[in-house]
Every structure is written in C-alpha cells, then in structure tokens.
C-alpha cells in the first residue's frame, strides 16, 4: 500500500470517528445524566461520566410518576397493532398476490395512489368517529387506525408473488383448503418479510406521538412518548429525571433493533425498491 493511500485511510477513519462521536455523544450524555445526582447534569464543562451514580431518578419515575403503567400502555398498544396488522395485511397481501377477482388491478391502484395522502388529513374526522364509538381515551382508539396499512399490504404482496404457484397447487391436490394454505404454507414461507414488517410496525407505533397525543387525553392512558412530552412541561428543570425517562423510552426500542437489525436494514431496502 502506498503512502498516499495510507494518508487517505487515516483521514477517512478520522472523519468517520468524528461522525461516530457526534452521533453517540447525545446518548452517552443522556445515560450519564440519568444516573447523576439532581443538579449534576447542569455543569460546565459537561460531564460524560458521573462522579457518583444514583438510581433516584428511576425510582422517582417508577414510584411517584408510575412509569410502569405508561410502559405497559406502550407495550399493549404496540403489540396489538403489530399482531393485528400483520394478520390483516398478510391476508390481503395473499389475496392480491395469488387470486384473480374483478377490479383487482383497479383496487390495487387506488390503494397505491392513496399512499400519497398524509395521515394528518384523516385525524379530525377519525377523532369524531372514535369519539362517537366511545373509543377516545381507550387503547382501541389508538389501535384501530393502525390495524391495516396499505404499505404493509404492498410489501407482503410483493413477497408472496415470488412464492411459486406449484407449491400452492401441490397442497391443493393433497386436499388442503385455502385457509390451511394461507396459515400453513404462505405464512411460514413469508417469515422473513413478516418479521421485517413486525419490526417496522412495532417500532413505528412505539415511537408514534401525534395520534396517541390526540386520542389519549387521560393521564393514566398515556404512552411513553406522550408522558415524556407532558413531563417536559412541569419538570423542565429536572434534567436528570427527564434523561432517565428518555432512557426508559428509548432503551426497549434499541434492544429490539439490535436483536433484529438484519431484518430492519433489509426492510429499508425493500421499501426503497420502486416497481
């Protein structure tokens, strides 16, 4: 390797290292502050490793501010949306991929072109509708608009199309009915895309803010992002406690991501491939 390349190598690594520090520093500071005694985070120069470590902010959050409850709310909502939408989207994706029925192309085109409509447009009437149904301030109110998604149907359809028809026909000759085929052949074969979709949906709903903020007006129903935004109002001085709250909100999603990152990164690629 010549010296010009050697120099280039060092420069690239230095630049990448700067990038790494910039992306990681906020997280390191958050974790450090969350374990610092009250008031310690407000120092100049900032401290990245606390001198004394305390769990008091986590204790306050769980005992006085019942964060466990909000955590549970977030879990219930995210898991429900993920589970239900996975089933509904995969059923519809299967139908679009492997059946022939009147106006199939028209319906599919309608769905695809509707993807340009931002969700915010639906929120006002949706709120009134769910209000009439008595779903405001309930889990169902947050869950219902998420139980099916055009994008999800589209991605699953793309995957199922590539499953050979012969696999289905063979099962049919053996006397399998359509639901058996869906459940025992299509779903298992589609596992990679289903895991990817599940991951995207779970993370998306866990991080979602605007809709839960609108639907959940009662304190005990809040999800973690909503409660965090709310705490910001009264506890803006309690830096360390807010950081502990942020850790609790971010940590589960980071763990899920790290465990399944292969599927997540793969999903990004699927989404970016145009027809």
């Amino acid at each position: 390797m010549n010296s010009k390349n050697q120099l280039r190598k060092i420069i690239i690594h230095l630049a990448l290292l700067c990038g790494l520090i910039l992306t990681i520093a906020p997280f390191v500071w958050m974790i450090s502050a969350s374990f610092s005694p009250a008031g310690q985070a407000n120092q100049y120069p900032p401290v990245f490793i606390p001198k004394t470590v305390t769990l008091e902010h986590y204790q306050t959050l769980f005992s006085r501010l019942s964060v466990a409850r909000y955590f549970l709310n977030s879990i219930i909502i995210s898991v429900s949306i993920t589970g239900i939408s996975l089933i509904f989207n995969s059923m519809a994706g299967f139908a679009f991929a492997k059946y022939r029925f009147p106006s199939k192309q028209k319906l599919f085109k309608l769905l695809l072109s509707a993807m340009v409509i931002p969700a915010q447009v639906t929120m006002l009437p949706l709120f009134l509708m769910l209000n009439r149904m008595g779903f405001i301030n309930t889990y169902l109110g947050v869950i219902i608009p998420g139980i099916a998604s055009i994008y999800g149907i589209f991605l699953i359809r793309q995957y199922i199309i590539s499953i050979p028809d012969s696999l289905i026909e063979a099962a049919r000759i053996d006397g399998a009915n359509d639901f058996y085929i869906y459940w025992r052949i299509i779903l298992p074969v589609s596992k990679p895309i289903l895991v990817t979709m599940a991951l995207f949906t779970f993370m998306g709903t866990w991080n979602d803010f605007l809709w839960p903020l609108i639907v959940l007006t009662k304190d005990s129903m809040y999800t973690l992002p909503v409660v965090l935004a709310n705490l910001m109002g009264e506890h803006v001085q309690d830096t360390e406690m807010m950081m502990a709250g942020s850790v609790i909100t971010i940590l589960p999603i980071i763990i899920v991501f790290l465990a399944l990152q292969k599927y997540y990164l793969h999903g990004i690629m699927l989404g970016s491939i145009k027809e």
């Binding site: 990038g19 992306t23 906020p26 965090l228 950081m243």
Partner: peptide
C-alpha cells in the same frame, strides 16, 4: 452507530436535544 438515532424515539430525542441546546450547560 450512525443508525442508532434513526430508531430512537423522536420525542425522547427532542427531550434530550432540548437540554443539549441549553445555552449555558
């Protein structure tokens, strides 16, 4: 590491950055 901010909850990130932008500390 470049990807971590993408998955982090936006609201929590906004909370952290509000302190990161503190004029003094």
């Amino acid at each position: 590491s470049y990807f971590l901010p993408v998955v982090a909850t936006l609201v929590a990130v906004a909370v952290i950055w509000r302190f990161i932008y503190h004029p003094r500390f």
